[in-house]
Amino acid sequence: MTKMLMKEFRLAMHPTNLIFLTLSAMLIIPNYPYYVTFFYTTLGLFFLCLNGRENHDLEYSITLPVRKQEIVKGRIGFAVLIELAQLLLAIPFAILRNRLSPVGNEVGMDANIAFFGFSLLMLGAFNLQFFTAYYKNPDKVGKAYVISSTFVFLFIVVAEALTHIAPFFHDQLDTPDPQFLQAKLIVLAIGSVSFIILTLVSYLISAKRFTALDL
Protein backbone atom coordinates (compact mmCIF):
# COMPACT_ATOMS: atom_id res chain seq x y z
CA MET A 1 0.00 0.00 0.00
CA THR A 2 2.80 2.43 0.92
CA LYS A 3 4.62 1.63 -2.31
CA MET A 4 1.46 2.07 -4.37
CA LEU A 5 0.82 5.42 -2.68
CA MET A 6 4.37 6.43 -3.44
CA LYS A 7 3.76 5.51 -7.07
CA GLU A 8 0.58 7.60 -7.04
CA PHE A 9 2.38 10.65 -5.66
CA ARG A 10 5.59 10.36 -7.69
CA LEU A 11 4.27 9.16 -11.04
CA ALA A 12 0.51 9.26 -11.32
CA MET A 13 -0.42 12.52 -9.60
CA HIS A 14 -1.83 15.25 -11.83
CA PRO A 15 -0.74 18.85 -11.06
CA THR A 16 -4.34 19.86 -10.41
CA ASN A 17 -4.47 17.47 -7.44
CA LEU A 18 -2.18 19.90 -5.63
CA ILE A 19 -3.26 23.12 -7.35
CA PHE A 20 -6.92 22.56 -6.48
CA LEU A 21 -5.99 22.17 -2.81
CA THR A 22 -5.39 25.92 -2.80
CA LEU A 23 -9.08 26.32 -3.66
CA SER A 24 -9.84 25.52 -0.04
CA ALA A 25 -9.20 29.25 0.32
CA MET A 26 -12.54 29.85 -1.43
CA LEU A 27 -14.19 29.39 1.93
CA ILE A 28 -13.02 32.88 2.76
CA ILE A 29 -15.36 34.33 0.11
CA PRO A 30 -18.24 35.95 2.04
CA ASN A 31 -21.06 34.60 -0.14
CA TYR A 32 -20.46 31.48 -2.22
CA PRO A 33 -21.75 27.93 -2.67
CA TYR A 34 -18.88 26.46 -0.64
CA TYR A 35 -19.54 22.87 -1.75
CA VAL A 36 -18.08 23.86 -5.12
CA THR A 37 -14.64 23.72 -3.45
CA PHE A 38 -15.02 19.95 -3.18
CA PHE A 39 -16.38 19.71 -6.68
CA TYR A 40 -12.91 20.84 -7.77
CA THR A 41 -11.41 18.02 -5.68
CA THR A 42 -13.44 15.54 -7.69
CA LEU A 43 -12.42 17.26 -10.93
CA GLY A 44 -8.76 16.79 -9.96
CA LEU A 45 -9.40 13.08 -9.35
CA PHE A 46 -10.96 12.83 -12.80
CA PHE A 47 -7.82 14.43 -14.28
CA LEU A 48 -5.73 11.95 -12.30
CA CYS A 49 -7.50 8.98 -13.88
CA LEU A 50 -7.61 10.61 -17.33
CA ASN A 51 -3.90 11.33 -17.08
CA GLY A 52 -3.38 7.73 -16.00
CA ARG A 53 -5.15 6.45 -19.08
CA GLU A 54 -3.01 8.61 -21.38
CA ASN A 55 0.16 7.52 -19.55
CA HIS A 56 -0.78 3.82 -19.54
CA ASP A 57 -0.68 3.78 -15.77
CA LEU A 58 -2.65 0.56 -15.45
CA GLU A 59 -0.50 -1.22 -18.04
CA TYR A 60 2.55 -0.22 -16.01
CA SER A 61 1.01 -1.07 -12.65
CA ILE A 62 -0.16 -4.58 -13.52
CA THR A 63 3.37 -5.65 -14.43
CA LEU A 64 4.57 -4.71 -10.93
CA PRO A 65 4.64 -7.45 -8.29
CA VAL A 66 1.28 -6.49 -6.82
CA ARG A 67 -2.19 -7.96 -7.05
CA LYS A 68 -4.82 -6.11 -9.00
CA GLN A 69 -6.77 -5.07 -5.89
CA GLU A 70 -3.67 -3.34 -4.52
CA ILE A 71 -3.66 -1.07 -7.58
CA VAL A 72 -7.23 -0.07 -6.74
CA LYS A 73 -6.36 0.37 -3.08
CA GLY A 74 -3.48 2.69 -3.98
CA ARG A 75 -5.65 4.85 -6.21
CA ILE A 76 -8.59 5.16 -3.83
CA GLY A 77 -6.18 5.64 -0.92
CA PHE A 78 -4.60 8.53 -2.80
CA ALA A 79 -8.04 10.01 -3.51
CA VAL A 80 -8.93 9.84 0.19
CA LEU A 81 -5.71 11.64 1.15
CA ILE A 82 -6.39 14.41 -1.36
CA GLU A 83 -10.01 14.76 -0.24
CA LEU A 84 -9.07 14.93 3.43
CA ALA A 85 -6.26 17.38 2.69
CA GLN A 86 -8.76 19.62 0.87
CA LEU A 87 -11.10 19.41 3.81
CA LEU A 88 -8.47 20.05 6.48
CA LEU A 89 -7.05 22.98 4.54
CA ALA A 90 -10.54 24.45 4.27
CA ILE A 91 -11.05 24.53 8.06
CA PRO A 92 -8.78 27.52 8.83
CA PHE A 93 -10.35 29.48 5.95
CA ALA A 94 -13.81 28.71 7.28
CA ILE A 95 -12.79 30.00 10.73
CA LEU A 96 -11.15 33.07 9.21
CA ARG A 97 -14.19 33.86 7.07
CA ASN A 98 -16.52 33.68 10.03
CA ARG A 99 -14.27 35.94 12.08
CA LEU A 100 -13.92 38.49 9.31
CA SER A 101 -17.63 38.56 8.54
CA PRO A 102 -20.05 37.25 11.15
CA VAL A 103 -22.96 37.62 8.67
CA GLY A 104 -23.97 34.22 7.26
CA ASN A 105 -23.48 33.03 3.69
CA GLU A 106 -26.30 34.55 1.61
CA VAL A 107 -25.94 31.96 -1.17
CA GLY A 108 -26.43 28.84 0.87
CA MET A 109 -24.82 26.79 3.59
CA ASP A 110 -22.52 28.56 6.04
CA ALA A 111 -18.95 27.30 6.30
CA ASN A 112 -19.65 25.55 9.58
CA ILE A 113 -19.31 22.11 11.19
CA ALA A 114 -22.44 20.73 9.50
CA PHE A 115 -21.12 21.90 6.13
CA PHE A 116 -18.05 19.70 6.58
CA GLY A 117 -20.29 16.75 7.50
CA PHE A 118 -22.34 17.17 4.33
CA SER A 119 -19.15 17.60 2.29
CA LEU A 120 -17.82 14.30 3.61
CA LEU A 121 -21.09 12.62 2.67
CA MET A 122 -20.85 14.12 -0.82
CA LEU A 123 -17.24 13.00 -1.29
CA GLY A 124 -17.99 9.49 -0.03
CA ALA A 125 -20.88 9.18 -2.49
CA PHE A 126 -18.63 10.52 -5.25
CA ASN A 127 -16.00 7.88 -4.43
CA LEU A 128 -18.63 5.17 -4.64
CA GLN A 129 -19.98 6.29 -7.98
CA PHE A 130 -16.82 7.39 -9.71
CA PHE A 131 -14.41 4.60 -8.83
CA THR A 132 -16.87 1.73 -9.27
CA ALA A 133 -17.75 3.05 -12.74
CA TYR A 134 -14.09 3.77 -13.56
CA TYR A 135 -12.85 0.30 -12.62
CA LYS A 136 -15.66 -1.31 -14.57
CA ASN A 137 -14.05 0.11 -17.69
CA PRO A 138 -10.97 2.31 -17.13
CA ASP A 139 -11.02 3.42 -20.77
CA LYS A 140 -14.35 5.16 -20.17
CA VAL A 141 -13.11 7.53 -17.47
CA GLY A 142 -15.19 10.38 -18.95
CA LYS A 143 -18.39 8.38 -18.64
CA ALA A 144 -17.58 7.57 -15.01
CA TYR A 145 -17.06 11.26 -14.28
CA VAL A 146 -20.21 12.42 -16.09
CA ILE A 147 -22.27 10.10 -13.86
CA SER A 148 -20.54 11.02 -10.62
CA SER A 149 -20.18 14.76 -11.27
CA THR A 150 -23.87 14.98 -12.19
CA PHE A 151 -24.58 13.52 -8.77
CA VAL A 152 -22.23 16.04 -7.12
CA PHE A 153 -23.96 18.90 -8.94
CA LEU A 154 -27.41 17.68 -7.89
CA PHE A 155 -26.18 17.19 -4.32
CA ILE A 156 -24.96 20.80 -4.22
CA VAL A 157 -28.23 22.12 -5.65
CA VAL A 158 -30.35 20.16 -3.17
CA ALA A 159 -28.10 20.87 -0.17
CA GLU A 160 -28.04 24.60 -0.88
CA ALA A 161 -31.77 24.70 -1.65
CA LEU A 162 -32.55 23.05 1.69
CA THR A 163 -30.91 25.96 3.53
CA HIS A 164 -33.55 28.21 1.96
CA ILE A 165 -36.64 26.02 2.11
CA ALA A 166 -36.26 23.52 4.95
CA PRO A 167 -36.75 25.09 8.40
CA PHE A 168 -34.41 22.64 10.19
CA PHE A 169 -31.60 23.49 7.77
CA HIS A 170 -32.40 27.19 7.72
CA ASP A 171 -32.85 27.64 11.46
CA GLN A 172 -30.33 25.21 12.92
CA LEU A 173 -27.77 23.75 10.52
CA ASP A 174 -27.17 26.87 8.41
CA THR A 175 -26.14 29.03 11.36
CA PRO A 176 -22.78 30.30 12.59
CA ASP A 177 -20.85 28.01 14.96
CA PRO A 178 -21.14 27.29 17.83
CA GLN A 179 -24.95 27.67 17.63
CA PHE A 180 -26.86 24.32 17.57
CA LEU A 181 -23.54 22.57 18.07
CA GLN A 182 -25.07 19.22 18.96
CA ALA A 183 -27.09 18.96 15.74
CA LYS A 184 -24.09 20.01 13.68
CA LEU A 185 -21.79 17.53 15.39
CA ILE A 186 -24.29 14.77 14.65
CA VAL A 187 -24.25 15.79 10.97
CA LEU A 188 -20.44 15.76 11.04
CA ALA A 189 -20.41 12.31 12.65
CA ILE A 190 -22.92 10.94 10.12
CA GLY A 191 -20.93 12.52 7.29
CA SER A 192 -17.64 11.05 8.57
CA VAL A 193 -19.07 7.55 9.04
CA SER A 194 -20.79 7.73 5.63
CA PHE A 195 -17.53 8.81 4.01
CA ILE A 196 -15.71 5.82 5.51
CA ILE A 197 -18.42 3.29 4.66
CA LEU A 198 -19.09 4.58 1.13
CA THR A 199 -15.38 4.70 0.32
CA LEU A 200 -14.82 1.23 1.72
CA VAL A 201 -17.73 -0.16 -0.31
CA SER A 202 -16.36 1.69 -3.32
CA TYR A 203 -13.00 -0.06 -2.85
CA LEU A 204 -14.58 -3.50 -2.47
CA ILE A 205 -16.74 -3.16 -5.59
CA SER A 206 -13.97 -1.48 -7.61
CA ALA A 207 -11.40 -4.14 -6.66
CA LYS A 208 -13.81 -6.91 -7.59
CA ARG A 209 -14.61 -5.30 -10.94
CA PHE A 210 -10.99 -4.52 -11.77
CA THR A 211 -9.84 -8.02 -10.82
CA ALA A 212 -12.44 -9.54 -13.14
CA LEU A 213 -11.51 -7.20 -15.99
CA ASP A 214 -9.62 -8.45 -19.05
CA LEU A 215 -6.97 -5.88 -19.85
Binding site: K3, M6, R10, L11, N55, H56, E59, T63
Partner: peptide, 26 residues
Amino acid sequence: GFVSGGVDYYTRKKLRSITKITSAFY
Protein backbone atom coordinates in the same frame (compact mmCIF):
# COMPACT_ATOMS: atom_id res chain seq x y z
CA GLY B 1 10.02 -9.74 -16.17
CA PHE B 2 7.20 -8.91 -18.55
CA VAL B 3 8.12 -6.55 -21.35
CA SER B 4 5.42 -5.57 -23.78
CA GLY B 5 7.33 -3.62 -26.41
CA GLY B 6 9.11 -0.47 -25.28
CA VAL B 7 8.43 1.77 -22.32
CA ASP B 8 5.25 3.61 -23.28
CA TYR B 9 4.13 4.65 -19.82
CA TYR B 10 4.81 7.97 -18.16
CA THR B 11 6.60 9.14 -21.24
CA ARG B 12 7.24 12.64 -19.83
CA LYS B 13 8.79 11.43 -16.58
CA LYS B 14 12.52 10.93 -16.31
CA LEU B 15 13.70 7.34 -16.48
CA ARG B 16 15.36 7.96 -13.12
CA SER B 17 11.96 8.71 -11.52
CA ILE B 18 10.34 5.63 -13.10
CA THR B 19 13.25 3.47 -11.95
CA LYS B 20 13.09 4.79 -8.42
CA ILE B 21 9.43 3.85 -8.07
CA THR B 22 9.73 0.54 -9.92
CA SER B 23 12.75 -0.60 -7.92
CA ALA B 24 10.88 -0.11 -4.63
CA PHE B 25 8.52 -2.95 -5.56
CA TYR B 26 11.22 -5.58 -5.99
